[in-house]
């Protein structure tokens, strides 16, 4: 870390945007906002704005990608050119290809892929505005989109990051904290099965710090999960009201 950087945590122990170390950014979730897609979701997490859309399951094209014993999940994580300060080239970068792969691997365990052999589903995650932690927010939205598409799932998947900033373990890093801070640990969780499907670490943490960060991230995941479940149910709330009459 360079000494010139301004303090990321002030004397009161608050972060740049006034959050406490273990506080999440404000989250807004919406399900079923793209009528053309089989399933879709939108997430706002702080300044992050991300759309997720699911198409399928359908016949896999090209055919050689189909698996005779399971469904294939094809995932594209993409950042819009206008999602960051400096224009991002719309071509998929090395980073985006990797994140697409990581997101796919974190969602596949939650889907009953063996129920629909020889088919494929296409998942698109489009980052409209990015401010750190987009892969986690993307996973959270994608899980909702898959559930809304009526694809059978073992559990929803929810993701959240924790990290180390100014020698403090903090939850849900934003862009500056991620870049200037010393470590970032994104975690994806299947909350009911209590299974982790994604665990990465970027930076340096000692074993104790890592454990603290992981536990903090898991706590964050569980908080977001409640909102995720609420968002999914809200779409059908009108139905429930009819029922109560």
């Amino acid at each position: 870390m360079k000494k010139k950087n301004k303090k990321l945590i002030d004397k009161k122990g608050l972060r740049m945007d006034g959050r406490k170390p273990d506080e999440l950014r404000s989250v807004k979730l919406e399900v079923g906002i793209l009528p053309n897609a089989d399933g879709s979701a939108y997430i706002e997490m702080g300044k992050n704005k991300i759309l997720a859309a699911v198409y399928g399951p359908k016949e896999m094209h090209p055919k050689h990608l189909a698996r005779s014993d399971r469904m294939v999940l094809r995932c594209r994580y993409h950042m819009a050119p206008f999602s960051v300060q400096e224009r991002k080239s719309p071509a998929p970068s090395r980073r985006e290809v990797e994140i697409s792969k990581v997101i796919r691997d974190s969602l596949v365990p939650a889907i009953f892929v063996e129920n629909y052999p020889r088919t494929g589903i296409d998942l698109f995650i489009e980052v409209l505005q990015a401010d750190g932690g987009t892969r986690c927010a993307g996973i959270t939205a994608a899980a909702l989109a898959i559930a809304e598409a009526g694809i059978p799932m073992r559990d929803l998947v929810v993701a959240c990051a924790a990290g180390k900033v100014d020698e403090t373990i903090v939850l849900d890093l934003m862009d500056t904290e991620d870049k200037v801070g010393s470590a970032d640990v994104p975690v994806a969780l299947m909350p009911n099965l209590n299974a982790i499907t994604l665990l990465q670490m970027d930076g340096i943490l000692n074993p104790d710090e890592f454990e603290e960060a992981l536990n903090l991230a898991l706590k964050g995941c569980k908080k977001i999960y409640e909102m995720q479940r609420e968002a999914l149910k809200t779409k059908y709330v009108n139905l429930k009201e009819v029922e109560e009459q």
Binding site: D155, L156, N192
Partner: peptide
């Protein structure tokens, strides 16, 4: 009965 549930709920 007839309560709404999401995937993964026990």
């Amino acid at each position: 009965k007839r309560q709404i549930v999401t995937p993964g709920e026990l």
